[in-house]
Design a protein around this nucleic acid. Sequence first.
DNA 1: CTTCTGACTGGGA
DNA 2: GTCCCAGCCAGAA
Length: 115
Amino acid sequence: MTKQSSSFFQRAIEMVKRIPDGQVSTYGQISRLMSGSVRGARAVGYALAGLSEEEAQVIPWWRVINAQGRISNSRQEHRAIIQRKLLEEEGIKFDEDESIDLSSFGWQGPDEVMA
DNA sequence: CTTCTGACTGGGA
DNA sequence: GTCCCAGCCAGAA
């Protein structure tokens, strides 16, 4: 690809779409799967932050949380509330400190899930 | 071109 | 457990 038809944002979004129902991933995980490093984790979050409502209906952005197993939110705190609700409806369990056990609900990846 | 910001991460105090 | 700091990447001004 001479100039990478898909931008970093687009690739991040495509990766998020692959997260199966009932599982969650982290920004660093997405970055590692698409670029090989967790360095771009910040950019992944920035990509999801710019999602329009139209895209939000197609992209499971709510399945992406930070490495601490908690929901990250930007200026729009409203999103965090919706995110938690959607995750609970998918079977994700929250601890008392509002964190998610990545060992149980963490996504293993598109191909690494061969256990 | 330079500079700043951000849904991040990891390490140290 | 908490708080603070430095690093990396991509996009916008």
